[in-house]
Computed example of a mutant assay.
Amino acid sequence: MIDKLASLPHEAADTLARPFARFLKIEAAAGALLFLAVLLALGLANSPWHRVFLDFWETRIGLTFGSWDFSRSLRHWVNDGLMTLFFFVLSLELKREIVLGELRNPRQVALPLAGAVGGMVVPVAMYLTLMSGESGMHGWGTVMATDTAFVIGCLALFGNRVPPTLRLFLLSLAIFDDVGAILVVALGYGEALNWSALGLGLLGIGAVASASRLGIRSVPVYSLIGAGVWLCIDASGVHATIAGVILGLMTPTRVWVSDARLRGILGRLLAHPAGEHWSGDTTERHDLLQAGTAVTESVSPVERLEMILHPWVGFAIMPIFALANAGMTFQGADFQQTE
């Protein structure tokens, strides 16, 4: 009886939900889904419906008020909108490792940082050497970026066979590389920056820092400010996914409720006599709600957000990203000689 009461009640739906939950815990499943999305995108792009499929991602979605137009293609919303959450989750993991994990040692950070810099500088140097004097020389920025989403997807395919240290190295390298590529695109290839929008975005980032200092812990509040930051940065002409990187690195790693305080709050709750007296405006109900908050806040915001968003990124955002970008059309080549 004690063992049964020490766990959550069992419902009929759990019989179906638990096997599905075990499937979701397999990291390789996200990589396999990404691989299937790539195959589907390639298949549709080279099928009789290729024009409908490719035009679908160019559909304009947004708001227009008179001369003010804030509409983007569906592919833009995927690449700069949904992928912001992808970079946000990667930055959460990187922040956790920098503060609490193996990257606390600056020497551990130096290797992936050096690898990222080398991975950008060497391809650019080779490109400029080969294209010296050619019309395409200005395209040097296209060879320096690593597709982080597919790097992480490939790692996920191997599951536990990838050593944690190797995964952490590649994760750090991919993030450093992507941040560098975003800066290069923004500074070297971007259009004229909208400084007003960029200034509003920086104010939003300052508002996030101020709210954290004041002790505000409401996820909806930060989500609303974060959405505003994204809109401002996107309107400024800077690659909007940088907002996810910045906000992820700003997320606190410190728990609000310590282990000792949690035990004290739960102890006070358990001191109430057994019975169904948790409803109404009572001391027991207040202690119950406080215990629920304490349990939630005993996990750091970084880990809590990572647990919430990771399944959405792995099983929804990454496959959609692959569908939007992997649709390459192959055309036959004519090798016959002409006179």
Results as ranks from 00 to 15, higher is better:
Arg254His: 12
Leu90Val: 15
Ala197Asn: 11
Ile216Asn: 00
Ala114Glu: 10
Glu303Gly: 01
Val185Lys: 05
Gly115Phe: 14
Leu198Asp: 02
Leu39Glu: 05
Leu130Thr: 15
Leu40Phe: 10
Trp312Ala: 15
Trp57Arg: 07
Ala207Cys: 15
His50Lys: 05
Val99Leu: 03
Met250Thr: 02
Gly215His: 09
Arg213Asp: 08
Ala243Thr: 14
Arg217Ile: 04
Leu36Ile: 09
Glu27Asp: 14
Arg75Ser: 12
Ala207Lys: 03
Gly226Gln: 00
Gly327Thr: 15
Thr282Pro: 04
Leu40Val: 02
Pro19Arg: 07
Ser196Leu: 06
Asp334Lys: 05
Thr338Tyr: 07
Val179Gly: 00
Trp49Val: 01
Ile152Asp: 10
Ala243Leu: 03
Gln337Ile: 04
Leu90Cys: 15
His76Arg: 14
Ile152Phe: 12
Ala240Pro: 13
Asp178Gly: 11
Phe169Pro: 07
His76Glu: 15
Val121Met: 13
Ala291Trp: 05
Gly139Lys: 14
Thr84Ile: 05
Pro106Lys: 11
Glu339Lys: 06
Phe56Glu: 14
Trp195Cys: 00
Trp230Ile: 10
Phe158Ile: 07
Thr84Phe: 02
Phe158Tyr: 08
Asp14Ile: 13
Arg217Phe: 04
Thr253Lys: 01
Gly292Glu: 01
Cys232Ala: 09
Ala32Asp: 11
His310Gln: 08
Thr146Leu: 10
Gly31Val: 01
Cys232Lys: 01
Ile152Ala: 10
Thr64Asp: 09
Phe88Arg: 03
Ile216Asp: 02
Ile61His: 10
Pro106Arg: 12
Asn79Pro: 15
Val151His: 06
Ala30Gly: 05
Ala324Ile: 12
Phe35Asn: 01
Thr251Cys: 13
Thr15Ala: 06
Ile265Ala: 11
Ala243Trp: 09
Glu276Ser: 15
Ala21Phe: 11
Val184Trp: 00
Ser132Ala: 15
Met126Pro: 10
Ala181Thr: 12
Leu170His: 13
Trp230Pro: 06
Thr253Gln: 02
Thr282Cys: 12
Arg72Gly: 13
Arg217Thr: 07
Leu155Ser: 08
Leu170Met: 12
Gly244Asp: 07
Ser236Gly: 07
Gly190Trp: 09
Ile225His: 03
Arg22Tyr: 09
Leu249Tyr: 04
Phe335Arg: 14
Tyr127Ala: 09
Gly81Pro: 10
Asp69Lys: 02
Thr64Phe: 06
Gly188Gln: 04
Ala324Lys: 06
Leu262Thr: 08
Pro273Arg: 15
Ala13Gln: 11
Ile265Met: 10
Lys95Asp: 00
Pro123Trp: 11
Gly188Pro: 02
Thr282Tyr: 04
Val238Trp: 12
Leu54Trp: 03
Leu94Asp: 02
Phe35Cys: 08
Leu247Asn: 01
Leu155Ala: 03
